[in-house]
Amino acid sequence: MQEAEYATMFGSEEHHWWYLGLHDQLQQAFARCRGLAAGPGRVLDAGCGTGKVLEILRDVAPVGLDLSATALALARRRGPFALTQASATTLPFAAASFDVAVSLDVLANVPPAEVPAAFRELFRVLAPGGALILNLVAFEALYSEHDRAVGVVKRYRIGEVRRLLAAAGFTLDICSYSNTILFPIAALVRLWRKRPRPGGRPPVSDLAPLPGPVNAVLAGIRRLENNMIVRHGFALPFGLSIFVLARKPVADNLQSA
């Protein structure tokens, strides 16, 4: 990710409809994790960025991990969280250290050849019965200036994600596309912005502020979709993102050591 984008992210996470919707989706999924036998008392945000998820889940004292020193410095401004600088592909934690692992729009920034290792690592550090809350950007055809700005290497299809999770040992509770209602408009914008910026100027993300009423409507649409996906179990057929709640089986003999 370009360094300037971390500051943009830090501010946008407070009010931008994209983040409001994603964080609502996280909170709904996390509420489902309250049913875990172990309880979601040990939480890892693998790719915590500027720390907004840590702030949202502060009541369970989450652990944040990110490869970027810039991101971690901004995360420290949100509170005295436990932070570690490391890659999601080699997590510096013992097996079965966490009840819930969160990975929101992180693994798309990892080279595809390393993504299976990242899923295996997330599986390893979860306790049996633990949960993974995952979000990934969808559809490679939509790769645009925004992706270049925030460091995305690859956009995924849901079948690929299912196979990667199964290969790592996970079972699926929720696996759906999201950002479906807004997909046609957003897709047109992304396709328009596929071209490099004139004059060789560095790419910028789509996180520019919107008028308050527009932002509120878009966030409301996201919350409606979140209810459909997380609370009611609908699997939507396409969207800008892929949202997953996956479980590590209780009877685990695969990679717990």
Rank of each mutant, 00 (worst) to 15 (best):
A235C: 14
A167T: 08
E160C: 02
K248F: 01
H16F: 04
G200S: 08
A82S: 13
A95Y: 12
V204N: 10
K154G: 04
W18A: 05
I56R: 09
A219M: 01
R157E: 12
A61W: 14
F123R: 12
P202R: 04
H15F: 06
A216P: 02
E145S: 12
E114M: 05
F98T: 01
F98K: 09
N215R: 00
L165M: 07
G212Q: 07
Q28N: 14
F183T: 04
L142C: 12
V43T: 03
R197I: 03
S178M: 13
A7D: 09
P211Y: 03
E160T: 01
L210S: 03
R155T: 03
F238L: 04
L122R: 09
L245A: 06
L240V: 04
G64W: 00
P213T: 00
R157K: 13
S97F: 07
A31T: 08
A29S: 11
L83G: 05
S178D: 11
R222W: 10
S97R: 11
R197K: 07
A166C: 14
L224V: 11
L240S: 09
V43L: 04
I221A: 03
V102W: 13
I185E: 13
N253A: 14
L54G: 03
S12K: 12
S176T: 01
I181L: 13
L224W: 15
D24W: 04
M9L: 08
L20S: 08
L104S: 04
G233I: 09
F234Y: 15
K248P: 02
R77W: 05
A61D: 09
L182C: 00
L72K: 08
S241G: 03
L182Y: 01
A71T: 00
P209A: 00
D105C: 05
I229A: 10
